[in-house]
């Protein structure tokens, strides 16, 4: 065997380690372990209806977490995903219910409003150099307030828009394969995740996502307009959050203006459990989806076992710490 082919193989192994495959594997193994554990503990857990419930519960947090993943890979953080989700839902409600526009306009509104607000956060971060934590904290509060103001603090119902609830709760797959009634919300999550994954690994936007998180100054010195790309990434994340807004308002068949706070932390938790580095430069959408699934399985499983909700929160906290600690251990060993 020639030297070149040896170094080829070893660099392949190193690449595997570097891309965070370890962490993804660990997260995936934990997910399987949880599924097996809960199945043994309770016969009610591994029911089709319960599995579907878990998937349905993952959809909103999963979509938000995918959005958060993009921003976190750039080395930033987005605290506004929760209230932005609500804001896009409220705006959709205004367009559909108050203005009586047809459904496609509502969908467009959610995605465009999301992208617009994302671009705002991005501009604050890129052009005005406000740290992402603060910029998106500000956006979080602004959007929460605006949602309440615009809706007059009352929920906006979608009763006048027939079929709105089907966006999340209907099942196209179930229509063709009656034995597999996977809700549309879950289908949408997977479409969003696959698209985002493709964008990250195969497009210029994705490449610059990692480059920003890895060494922004170097990228700038290489002649890349870093500000513009950063704004684009925040806008893309915002657009994805808009899809999350559609999902949650469709599931509740209403836009609940008081909702939203806390979702951003759940999303960040899923990202972290999925092995994306909070310091930027590394991460995968697949990991994030697994992370979101772990959180949903955990919540659901503990509920099936009749563990009090208070304890579920405690366990989620422990899982986050354990996940990051496992990642640190691995990194120290390879370093």
């Amino acid at each position: 065997m020639s030297d070149a082919s040896i170094s080829e193989t070893s660099s392949f192994i190193r690449r595997l380690a570097d891309t965070g495959a370890h962490q993804k594997l660990l997260a995936f193994a934990s997910l399987i372990l949880l599924l097996v554990g809960f199945s043994i503990a309770s016969p009610n857990f591994m029911q089709t209806s319960n599995m579907l419930a878990i998937l349905q519960a993952t959809s909103v947090n999963g979509v938000l977490a995918v959005a958060a993943t993009l921003v976190i890979i750039t080395g930033g953080i987005d605290l506004s995903v929760g209230t932005l989700m609500t804001f896009t839902a409220v705006m959709t409600g205004v367009v559909l219910t108050n203005l009586g526009a047809p459904l496609p306009f509502g969908i467009l509104t959610a995605v465009l409003m999301g992208a617009l607000c994302g671009a705002c956060s991005g501009t604050l971060v890129a052009k005005m150099k406000i740290p992402p934590f603060i910029a998106t904290l500000g956006m979080m509060l602004i959007l929460k307030g605006l949602s309440l103001v615009i809706s007059g603090t009352r929920p906006i119902y979608f009763n006048d828009t027939p079929g709105y609830d089907l966006i999340s709760r209907g099942s196209i797959i179930g229509h063709f394969f009656p034995s597999l009634p996977i809700p549309n919300g879950v289908l949408i999550l997977f479409i969003v995740a696959i698209t985002a994954s493709y964008v990250l690994s195969r497009t210029v936007l994705g490449r610059y996502c990692f480059a920003l998180g890895s060494n922004e100054e170097s990228m700038r010195l290489s002649g890349v307009n870093t500000d513009r790309w950063k704004i684009a990434i925040y806008a893309l994340a915002g657009g994805i959050v808009g899809i999350g807004g559609l999902l949650i308002s469709s599931r509740l068949n209403s836009a609940q203006p008081a909702l939203g706070l806390g979702y951003e932390l759940e999303a960040i938790a899923a990202v972290v459990i999925g092995g994306t580095s909070l310091s930027g430069g590394r991460g995968t959408v697949l990991g994030t989806v697994i992370g979101a699934l772990i959180m949903a399985v955990l919540t659901n499983g503990l509920r099936v076992l009749s563990v009090a909700q208070e304890w579920q929160t405690v366990v989620t906290g422990l899982i986050i710490i354990a996940a990051v600690y496992a990642d640190m251990l691995r990194r120290n060993r390879t370093a």
Partner: peptide, 26 residues
Amino acid sequence: LSLMNDLTVAQNIFIGREPRLSFGRL
């Protein structure tokens, strides 16, 4: 050194000048 540690060698060399296919694909 102003390289991006998380990216590959080739990705670093051509940062900002990536050969592109249609729709911003690399």
